[in-house]
Design a protein around this nucleic acid. Structure first.
Lengths: 187, 187
DNA sequence: CTTTTGTCGTTAGGGCCCTAACGATTCCAC
DNA sequence: GTGGAATCGTTAGGGCCCTAACGACAAAAG
């Protein structure tokens, strides 16, 4: 699942050279963009490697985390529905159906009927599911701390600040919803 | 394709609170990690939105870029093979077979027999493929420059430096090759 | 030569993600 | 009440990625 389909990032001299040839190419922006994708890829790879040790995929982890967080938040809350889970994990309802299918097959979650609305289903983590997520979480926290260990507290704050500037820009360039408000290329 | 399966990132106060409950959870490391994945996701989303305007996927773009770069590098070089393309784009040979299948179906690349080794195939971009990539590239460069526009040159350098520290750490935690040299959890 | 070993591209099968459409159910006017 | 709009979960079909295994071919070892 390489976001960045490049074995090696181009060296900066090559970017400078290419920038001389293509007026649209901004070498420092390209370098930052490629490094961002590459680092996101590497961080994701570390996460997946860790999850694979517990025989669980990224998608399943998201569902279990959402169920775990909901369970922790309060006992009297109404159980989560597939639509709610899809919303919280940023996948479509169709994808959530598939994820719940395999999680249920493996005995980690359980589907049940919703009492209030007969269109709905409720999804709950089984004791096995909760046990698995409780087993994964400590190592998950350690993985994040270990990955960020080479950065000081100040550097972490700096990084977060820079990343948030990029996110804000990304949202204004291409709104998440799909079609942009003011078309850039269309028409 | 959300790397980070979370609609909203947790607020820092929540991370602090959770950190008090879970000794392994480092709030600032978690914040940096989640922001990194989220920003990588957003940057990737902008890239895919741009490529979708040209009816091309991320995987296909990588193959066309590799062919384009190879074509530019020199005329006398031997043509690329599927194995070479897989290596350069960081996918398996099996995946490359599928990518070339669809690219060939759409008339963007062409397979041919290799003269030196009858096991091999050579892959070349068709004029249509080269035309498409030449049409995409200017906007691609503009997209990267636009996304990084809110960052000054100094900030870009700072960002790249911080990201490279994380990449180095990621490689030492989980080597790309698969099995780690010195097992951390196993055994 | 012959045999072994390794690499080529491909196929088969699975996971995760998407869009589009479906029957069932609920809600909101009228 | 009752008909239309909206939402529920699901299914069908496709794209991209993976691992495992295959037949074909090449190269090194005997």
């Amino acid at each position: 699942m390489p976001l960045l389909m490049l074995k090696d990032l181009p060296r900066y001299e090559c970017l400078l050279q290419a920038g001389a040839e293509f007026p649209d190419l901004d070498p420092s922006a390209t370098e930052a963009f490629l490094n961002l994708l590459h680092t996101g890829d590497e961080a994701f790879r570390v996460l997946e490697t860790h999850l694979a040790n517990h025989d669980i995929s990224h998608g399943r982890f998201g569902v279990l985390m959402a169920l775990w967080a909901h369970e922790r938040r309060g006992c009297a809350l109404p159980p989560l529905t597939p639509a709610e889970l899809a919303e919280r994990t940023s996948v479509t309802r169709a994808t959530m159906t598939g994820l719940i299918d395999t999680l249920e097959r493996d005995g980690l979650v359980r589907r049940g009927p919703a009492t209030s609305d007969r269109r709905m289903t409720i999804v709950q983590a089984t004791p096995e599911g909760l046990s698995l997520i409780n087993q994964i979480l400590p190592r998950h926290f350690q993985m994040m701390a270990g990955l960020m260990a080479p950065l000081s507290d100040v550097e972490r704050k700096t990084l977060v600040g820079l990343l948030q500037k990029i996110v804000a820009r990304a949202v204004s360039i291409a709104p998440p919803g799909g079609e942009p408000a003011t078309a850039t290329a269309a028409r």
